[in-house]
Every structure is written in structure tokens, then in C-alpha cells.
């Protein structure tokens, strides 16, 4: 049982896919202008990564190696379409705000990485827990950044006023910069820095040349 718990909790802080592997950064920058958008995006990713890992793990013994990536992506892409359709049907305004980024979950390397590196070699139960943990780890980062950005950029959380802004007669002057994508880049950088200062073993060894491992 404790091992199962570790499978889920390890990716939250110790081996967080965003701060350790710097995966899934594109959407972390794009959709975190508000907490609500961060939560919906996180939920969409958790559903896709968990279900896709479970399915890939179930049929892992019958996936020919030569087409394994295509099979995985087909499954992931189908799930993403389904999630996108559900959002369009039940959370229309939110799906318009997230626009293409729900569809881009297909290219989120956290999802493919869990399918390819874990689910292909583990039983369905462990794969689902591993995917859930990684999805929650992604969600944790998105929610953290979304909270800071919405609070400092608009003075609200989930649309509810926390810091009354000057435009409405309050005292807080919103930081316009927080509404722009680069602010998420800085916040994410600060977060990675903090985590790696607290856990120096996560820092990558210095290299001769920069090696860009992953963009999305």
C-alpha cells in the first residue's frame, strides 16, 4: 500500500513532471491567467493521462513495437477529442477560453511519457496510479501559478474579489504583467529554482552546451 501511495505522491513534489523534467510547460504558460482555467485544464489533463495510461497498460502485451507510438497517440488523441467535446457541451465559455490548449494535450509530453515509459511496462493498476500522480503534479504547478497570476493580475480568485482593485475604488493596483504569458515563465522559473534549491539533487549537471529537452 505504501508503495502505491508513493507512486501517486512522488510526482507531486519529489519528481514533479513540470519542475523536475520541465514537461508540459507550454500549457502551463498559456492557460494560467486564472485559477478556474488552470483547474479545468488540470482536470482535462488528469483524465486524459490516467485513462490513456490505463488503456495502454491493458493492451501493452499486444502492442507491436514498430507501431507502439502511433497506437499510444491514437488512444491519447481520441481521449483528448472526447474531453474537448465534453467541455464544449458542458463548460462552453471555459472551452472557448482554453481554445486550442485542450486539443494540445495530445502534444503534452507528460501524457506520452507516462504511456511510453511507464504504462508499457507495468500493470494497469500501477500505471493508473502513476499517471494520476503525474497528472496531479502537473495540476499542482498549474494551480499554484494560476493562483498567483489571478490574484496579482486581477485581484480575484475564481472570479471572487480578494484584493479590491483601484479601478473599482479599492487600494490594489493589479500587475498588468501577470496577465501576459511571460509572467508564467518567470513564476515557473522561480518555482523550479526554489524546488532545486531545496533539493539540490534535482539540478542537472552543468553541460558544455545547452540541451533543450522539451518545449511543450
Amino acid at each position: 500500500m505504501s508503495e502505491h501511495r508513493r507512486t501517486v505522491t512522488a510526482p507531486l513534489l519529489v519528481a514533479n513532471p513540470v519542475t523536475l523534467h520541465v514537461l508540459g510547460v507550454c500549457s502551463a504558460l498559456a492557460v494560467t491567467t486564472s485559477l478556474a482555467a488552470s483547474l479545468v485544464m488540470s482536470a482535462a489533463l488528469i483524465v486524459v493521462v490516467t485513462v490513456s495510461s490505463g488503456i495502454v497498460s491493458l493492451i501493452r502485451r499486444h502492442i507491436p513495437r514498430s507501431i507502439r507510438l502511433i497506437v499510444q497517440i491514437t488512444i491519447i488523441a481520441s481521449l483528448v477529442i472526447v474531453v474537448d467535446q465534453v467541455l464544449q457541451a458542458y463548460l462552453f465559455a471555459m472551452s472557448r477560453r482554453l481554445s486550442v490548449f485542450v486539443g494540445l494535450i495530445v502534444t503534452n509530453c507528460i501524457v506520452l511519457a507516462r504511456a511510453e515509459s511507464f504504462a508499457m511496462e507495468h500493470a494497469p493498476g500501477a500505471s493508473v496510479l502513476d499517471a494520476l500522480g503525474n497528472g496531479l503534479g502537473y495540476a499542482l504547478i498549474l494551480v499554484a501559478i494560476g493562483t498567483v497570476r489571478e490574484l496579482l493580475g486581477a485581484g480575484t480568485l475564481m472570479g471572487v474579489t480578494v484584493l479590491p482593485i483601484t479601478a473599482d475604488g479599492g487600494w490594489f493596483t493589479p500587475l498588468e504583467f501577470m496577465n501576459l504569458p511571460p509572467s508564467a515563465f518567470f513564476l515557473l522559473g522561480l518555482l523550479v529554482w526554489t524546488v532545486r534549491t531545496l533539493r539540490p539533487e534535482q539540478a542537472e549537471p552543468a553541460r558544455e552546451s545547452m540541451d533543450i529537452t522539451e518545449a511543450r
Partner: peptide, 9 residues
């Protein structure tokens, strides 16, 4: 098997 799995998926 390869074609079959691709088709079924």
C-alpha cells in the same frame, strides 16, 4: 498482428 492491432485500435 501489426495490421490487426492498428485496425482494431
Amino acid at each position: 498482428k501489426t495490421i490487426g492491432v492498428a485496425f482494431l485500435v
